[in-house]
Amino acid sequence: MAKEIYTKYKMAKYLRKEALPTALCPGCGGGTVLNAFANAIDQLGIDPRDLVVVSGIGCSAWIASPYFLADTLHTTHGRAIAYATGVKVGLPDKKVVVISGDGDLAGIGGNHLIHAARRNIDITVILVNNFIYGMTGGQVAPTTPFGAITTTSPYRNVEHPLNIAETVTSAGASYVARWTTFHVYQLIESIKRALSVKGFALVEAISQCPVQFGRRNRMKTPTEMLRWFQKNSVPLSKARNMSPNELEGKIVVGELVNREKPEFTEELNSLIEEVSEHYGLGDNNAD
């Protein structure tokens, strides 16, 4: 079976074979995201040697790290973007990509997320939002829909979910989009655009966790969850004309923002140039 995948699946060349099979549960949306990412890399013709993938802790953190065959940095919980900041400053010519989950990037790591967006550092973040802490057994997340059942909100969630894409937009990112694993092609297109944008880019990929989330919320199978995504997704253009009440419980999909803004490493490097000039430190001034 595995052998068959390696020979027939076009994207297999991007995978770290000795790390397979993945630890993802059957029906998990993580595979779809990995596939979309590999396709985006393939279509853009990016050499994996020009890629560093950073992740935090959780199921989604494993999607590309270690399974994607590139330099991969699997870090501590919530801190992937801060690690990636160091990597990007050190390797400004490489593509630095963070793939991790909602609890990791927007729960414990929310601060690094908004500050990286504010700096507009050239990092592409693929945030896999499955509404739950899957790896630790299904606890409530800051993205869990209001009223959903989890192991730490056994009587239904009282908190409101964080609108990640909107928050990151208002924090100052260059590119923000949201899709679900139902929208595979749009997801690939958005990842491609995110990788091409110079600046902070976030692609929020709503993804299914049938085992920890679906099972407790009357959607035991991945298909039920995908159907739920399909039914509840509203394109951004349509959402703009809907009232907050109508939008309750909906997933707004599309490109939220795509703008040009000054980028962090460029600003940092041009500052260094300025300083060097100001103090007359250039080569031509060699003593």
Partner: peptide, 19 residues
């Protein structure tokens, strides 16, 4: 010392977006 090169936050706007 050479002037901030980062984009600043708009805290109020962030607070509205967060709810």
């Amino acid at each position: 010392p050479y002037g901030s090169f980062e984009n600043p936050f708009d805290i109020a706007e962030l607070a509205v977006a967060a709810g």
